[in-house]
Design a protein around this nucleic acid. Structure first.
Lengths: 245, 245
DNA sequence: TCTTTTGATCCGTGATCACACTTGCTTTGA
DNA sequence: TCAAAGCAAGTGTGATCACGGATCAAAAGA
């Protein structure tokens, strides 16, 4: 099985020339689009999504959309109302605290595991993301939230991928999907309070990873997760029942 | 909103007569059927599932089946092969260790949280399940694995429901879905080694919950999760590549 | 006898349609 | 003027069909 057939095309170095082409279905593209929109917070909490509406916007039939929505529902990224319509979950303080607690526990374990498994190459790959981040900050004065959130996501998942648990990764992805709609607002709220600490936080994490200090990495990540949510929590408690309608 | 309309039918005691009827779609029934089969280990690891085949067995069209399978795929209960066919994930030692580790962490946190929140009524409800278990064991000499696994599931989730985290519950359900196909074989393997300790384990858990001792509850649960898997792990290492084909 | 090719069959994907239910607005009545 | 009935547009669910790709077995060739 691990041997190549006699007819397998090989390069002069002995390796195979072609890697399998990826076959992306329409459903996959729809799912990826919605998922990205959810994680980046482009969809407002409480917003109702209709199959036909999304199908029209995405210029497909209803079929790929309903299956993509079904996947998102079972990942708790969107919720199915008893009317059988679906909406992105509204943000409440209870749900916020719940998400922060679970994320701290699970992602904390992931970085702790990663800290004891990451090679020098792994760490330097993560540092590269931080460098790109710094360059972006210095170049563009106006803040590009979409790019920043994508870099943040890459930073974290580059680490999580090193934890060695293929069971944990999908769980963490689901948690990010659930906290995505909050995060955007949280990022805004936090940016006002001064977002430079985020970079500092990330640097502490990488240092801990490089030193193989699992406890320090876990603590630094906990701070990183907790920080934007405290700002959002304050905003929710003060202006109260705005999103509860 | 909390007031009844003037036209709301009320009983003589003042309460409403009718509660909302549940609307179960075909897709929900298909999903529930597959899910139950998966958790109870009725489906063999590595087995390939076809949409048309399941639709024929369940006497429906392909539509509800493909959507139910889509949900199960995104919950990692089954896996999608590059051929676009789906199968029950095969059992490997690495996956086994991964599942045990993650389950111990997450479910351990859940029982620890539950230990500090459960009321006397909650604890007695859990004890009732153990009593039913004892009665079942004493009555039928031949072992009814299906019933036993359902009681085990009820026991654990009755506790987890008390942890107060609506984010954790779906994650734990997904983990059970993933370890279901292994568990059946593990239960067989463990039953030979003497399964009376399971009842003891559960009793220790309930005692810890009643005392509100989070640490003891977590430790007892960890032992409960670990035990059947060690037997299965031994079996896999000895007879080796049986399921790897 | 073994390899290769060809053909039929099966399967997943996506499109389209019919049906039942919900929703929101208009009309009708007091 | 207001509330209730009625109507119409919109939505999710499920069935059916067409199309492209995958799989497997039989047949043709070396």
């Amino acid at each position: 099985m691990t041997e190549f057939d006699a007819t397998t095309i090989q390069s002069s170095s002995g390796g195979p020339v072609f890697s399998p082409v990826e076959r992306e279905t329409v459903q996959d593209r729809v799912y990826a689009t919605l998922r990205s929109a959810l994680i980046c917070g482009l969809l407002e909490p409480g917003q109702v999504l209709t199959i036909r509406g999304l199908a029209e916007q995405l210029a497909t039939s209803t079929m790929p959309v309903r299956e993509a929505l079904g996947r998102l529902i079972s990942e708790k990224a969107v919720e199915a109302l008893p009317n059988r319509s679906v909406r992105v979950p509204p943000v409440t303080i209870a749900r916020l605290n719940d998400l922060v607690h679970v994320r701290t526990m699970i992602e904390g374990e992931a970085v702790a595991m990663a800290a004891q498994r990451m090679t020098k190459a792994d760490v330097s790959r993560v540092r590269t993301i931080l460098l790109e981040w710094d360059r972006m900050r210095s170049l563009s004065q106006e803040e590009d939230f979409d790019h920043e959130m994508r870099l943040n996501q890459n930073f974290h998942f580059e680490i999580y991928r090193c934890c060695g648990s293929s069971v944990m990764l999908p769980i963490i992805e689901s948690l990010w999907l659930q906290s995505g709609p909050c995060i955007r607002e949280a990022a805004y709220a936090f940016s006002e309070a001064g977002g430079v600490d985020t970079a500092h936080c990330h640097r502490v994490i990488v240092d801990a990873l490089e030193a193989g200090d699992a406890g320090a990495a876990r603590a630094a990540l906990a701070a990183d997760i907790e920080r934007p949510f405290t700002a959002l929590r304050q905003r929710l408690t003060t202006q109260g029942a705005r999103t509860s309608a």
